[in-house]
């Protein structure tokens, strides 16, 4: 459902890294994703650059176009404007950080065109 964000973006949610370590969602660092992907047999990290942000057809929804991976494959996702993405070297960022902070108490930066987000893909696709 588009009505709400998944519960794990709520401040204080406990996240398990690939090595078993537990961290709160607000304490995650870029290295946590990179290191978890390194020991994953199936998943690898891609760099996905925000290329466009458009308002969606539904209130509070945005369409974000990413250039994914080295080939900058074009992928669009439709998400709530408060949906947080993890930007390399910066942390949680959303199109409406005020809403993200108000609804989930998760501190966010503003997601902008040019930001490079952490995304996942399958190792076998490489």
């Amino acid at each position: 459902s588009l009505a709400t964000l998944p519960p794990f973006f709520m401040r204080g949610s406990i996240i398990q890294l690939a090595d078993g370590e537990l961290k709160r969602v607000e304490d995650l660092k870029t290295e946590d994703f990179i290191q978890s992907a390194e020991i994953s047999s199936e998943l690898k990290i891609d760099s996905s650059t925000v290329e466009r942000i458009d308002t969606g057809q539904t209130p509070n929804v945005v369409v974000i176009q990413f250039g994914v991976g080295e080939l900058k494959a074009q992928v669009s996702v439709e998400v709530l404007m408060e949906y947080p993405f993890f930007v390399f070297g910066q942390g949680w960022s959303s199109c409406c950080p005020d809403r993200t902070t108000r609804l989930f108490e998760l501190s966010c930066a503003k997601l902008c065109v040019g930001d490079v987000c952490v995304s996942l893909t399958l190792r076998s696709l490489g």
């Binding site: 996240i15 891609d46 987000c117």
Partner: peptide
Amino acid sequence: VPVFPWHSLVPFLAPTQSD
């Protein structure tokens, strides 16, 4: 207390592969 896996938090953006 629920524990969520790290890979739930970042999007899976698989580029479309040519068949």
